[in-house]
Design a binder for these strands. Structure first.
Lengths: 169, 169
DNA sequence: TGGCTGAGTATCTATAAGTAAACTCAAACT
DNA sequence: AGTTTGAGTTTACTTATAGATACTCAGCCA
């Protein structure tokens, strides 16, 4: 009897099909970063952009959407505002990444890596990521707590503390 | 002189702002998995669903969009169709993940991990991922080719073979 | 006082997604 | 021959999101 069968205890429900999917961490993350432009804004922040005009120029995205996305990212604590001042100009806001924002790097590196493998130009990728200290190429890997490298096929999902079934309405 | 300055050779352009972003692997991956429902369909495939009706039931998504997303995922080689046959029924198609699809696992694990950390229920996550062989919890990490664990701040981006600037129009 | 600049707002249109229900289609079963 | 079933397609309508463009606003400078 596996962990799923155990938690259901003969309710006749199917853990795959009658699960409550509203508390899924993937879906909740997508609520934030799944909107158009959001990840691309973060990409530009990682590449060093910080001003409203920078994002507009490099992304070519509509100003109203840019403003809305920046506001949301600040509200969510992924970006924070600081001020900068060019000589001869007044102070203006700029956007910097927070630790919470940096924690999105593995997810975005995963997207980058997949794109590099399957959708890159014939010549190769446009940008390479390397370890600042040793210069070696970096990639994302799945590892277990004991330090083993884990293949995607060797991941097993088990119900967590907030697992619940959909209530029959 | 860094790698960016070198590649620009005094053109007066800014590698951050005048870059050609059309060949970005992140953006190209998002063209596929950034559409609504796509990642959620893949999540259900990983949890064991394979039939049209399964996806419809667990996701509650519109049938026309589900059909469109499944078709796209098959065209892209992320899913493949096979047939199944219930006793007393005719053969029907089902959807299985391909190796190309499995390679999206690290990216999606990254989203899961971030959601578990910042957007989980007070009790904790709904689903836990563990290593089938040893039972230990798994997570995604950034590593360099030499095997060092790399912090997000220690990643350096350098121009790759397909790097180019936006042509001034 | 009037123009300039960066960072937004406001408004309008176009496209995509959500919702709901009817319709198709092929084989299996009655 | 008629019914059932899973896997779709099609149509019609509503709402949400994206995109384009014009406008505002605050401070600096001439």
């Amino acid at each position: 009897m596996d962990a799923w069968t155990e938690v259901l205890q003969d309710t006749g429900m199917d853990h795959r099909l009658d699960r409550d999917t509203s508390n899924c961490s993937i879906a909740r993350t997508l609520e934030i970063v799944g909107e158009k432009w959001t990840i691309l804004i973060l990409r530009e922040v990682w590449y060093g952009s910080s001003r409203f005009g920078d994002f507009e120029r490099v992304l070519g995205c509509p100003r109203n959407l840019l403003a809305a996305r920046l506001r949301m990212l600040v509200e969510e604590g992924i970006l924070a505002t600081e001020t900068y001042k060019e000589p001869g100009s007044r102070s203006r806001p700029k956007y910097v990444i927070t630790p919470k924002g940096m924690d999105l790097v593995p997810a975005v590196m995963g997207l980058l890596q997949w794109g590099d493998r399957y959708r890159a130009d014939p010549e190769g990728p446009a940008v390479l990521a390397r370890h600042r200290e040793c210069g070696a190429h970096v990639d994302v890997q799945i590892r277990c707590e004991r330090g083993h490298a884990v293949q995607a096929e060797d991941i097993e999902s088990v119900p967590g503390p907030a697992f619940r079934m959909r209530s029959p309405e």
